[in-house]
Each structure stands twice: as structure tokens, then as C-alpha cells.
Simulated assay, not measured.
Amino acid sequence: MSDVPASRVGWPDPRVVEALERVRAGKPLTYGLTNYIAAPLSANMLLAVGASPAIGGIPLGAAHFATIAGGAWINLAALISDTPELLLETARAANAASTPWVLDPVTVGAGIEATDALAAQLIDLGPAVVRGNASEVVALAGGDGATKGVDSTVSSEAAIPFAKSLAQRTGGVVAVSGPTDYLTDGVELVAVPGGHPYLTQVTGAGCSLGGLVAAFAAVVPDRLQAATAAHAVLATAAERAASRTRGTGSFAVALVDELSLLGVA
């Protein structure tokens, strides 16, 4: 556990509301490398909050999109179809253009040495935000994350010290997803309560959160505030979606609905 008390942030905190308004007004181009399973939901969730998504590892265009985008995210599950070199090239291009980019280290700690090595290379390129489950964050920080496939075996609370250490190392923000999400810039600690267990039962929901964080980082200069707002917006939309659906299938559709309706008079 961390000795830093966490401030709790959620909807309708004025900072969260303002951040969502900025996304809707700015319609930031948000470029992502992710897997083809998560891409449709990621794109729809980005459209629902007002962002303009572009997704896919076009071999001759990835670096270009990372340069012109307002924000970008790289999900290691993109390795299903993209090469490690393409992920690294995209991260370098984003850095060169001062495009804030988000790393989602899916499967890190699951025992795939090549993926863990690539994640370490990407971490050295200084992502603005690292967003993962507790096991992935612990493993990235050098602990024993013991990821079970894409699922965490560690509580988000237990990952707090590792998240703080990793944030200090990268100079960015680290976000740990769980029943309560924890986010830190290495000094300040924020807790985002809420959400719903259905989020863990819909393919691509976690991956899509990386895209939301990138969209918010495109228009909110404070990286911790941007990432916190994205998590709070998703948590609130999930709660509202679950309250009016009977199962995970209808929840996935309602989640996009609620994101599009959040903050709209």
C-alpha cells in the first residue's frame, strides 16, 4: 500500500466535466495501435465522447498518424497483426511531434519474454500515460505481476507503490485499473471509484480505455487530470449502462450510448 492518501475523483467533478467538454469541442484526432478484436469498440467509444479515431498499423502511415494526431495509444495486443518495429516507430514519431501517447501493456507479466522486452523498450521512450491492470503495472515496475492471460492476479491497491515507482521512472502518469482505479504521477495519488464488473466481461473495454485516455490527453495538458477524467467518464458511463441492462451484450451497446449522453443536456 502507498503512504500517500488518495484523493477521490468522479463525475460530476468540475475538472472531469471540463475535460469532457474539451474533448467534445476539440474533437481530437486520436490514433491507436490495438488488436482487431478491440478496434470497433475503441473507435465507437472515442466517437461517443466526441473524439475522431484512427486505428490501425498502416505500415507506411503509422508514424505519420502519430505525428498529426492530438493523442495516440499503443496497445501491445496490436502485435497480433503489427510488428514490434512498427510499435517502436510509432512511439518515436509521437515523441518527436510532442504527441502525448499512452501505453497499454496488455499481457506483460504473463511469461512472454519478447513482449516483456518490447514493453521495456517502449517504457524507455517515455509514454505520457501507462494504463494497465494491477499485474501488468507491477510487472512493468519490476515486481512479480503474474498476469493470468490478460487478467490481473494482483489487487489495484497492492499495485500502488509499483505504480508510483514506475511513474517516477517514466516522468509520466501510471493508471491502475480495478474495482477502484488508482492513478499517480509519482507524487499525487488519485482514486476513481465506480464502474461495473461488466467492464471485465466485454471484449475490448479495457483496451478502449487507453484510447479514451489518449483523447483526453490531447486536449488537457495536465496528464494526471486527463487520465483521471477519462477513467471517471468511463466509470460513470458503465454504472449508468449497467443500471438499465440485463447482461453483458446489451451492456456493451448501452455503454457507448451512455458515453455519448454524458454531460449532454
Rank of each mutant, 00 (worst) to 15 (best):
M1D: 09
D3Y: 08
V4Y: 10
P12F: 07
V16A: 00
V16D: 04
L20P: 04
G32T: 11
G32W: 08
L33Y: 06
N35M: 10
P40A: 12
A43M: 09
L47H: 02
A48K: 03
V49N: 03
S52F: 11
G56P: 11
A63D: 11
A66S: 14
I68G: 13
G70A: 07
G71M: 09
W73P: 04
A77D: 11
A78D: 02
L79E: 03
L79W: 04
N95V: 05
N95S: 14
S98M: 14
L103Q: 03
T107A: 07
G111S: 09
A114M: 07
L118Q: 04
A119M: 06
L125M: 12
V130K: 01
G132W: 02
N133E: 02
N133W: 05
S135L: 05
A139Y: 02
D144H: 12
D144I: 13
E157Y: 11
I160N: 00
S165E: 15
A167N: 00
A167H: 01
A167L: 04
T170Q: 05
G172A: 08
S177E: 02
Y182L: 01
A191M: 10
P193C: 05
P197F: 05
V202Q: 02
T203R: 08
G204H: 02
G206A: 06
G210W: 01
V213E: 00
P221W: 08
R223S: 05
E239C: 07
R240A: 15
A242H: 04
T248D: 14
L255Q: 08
S260R: 12
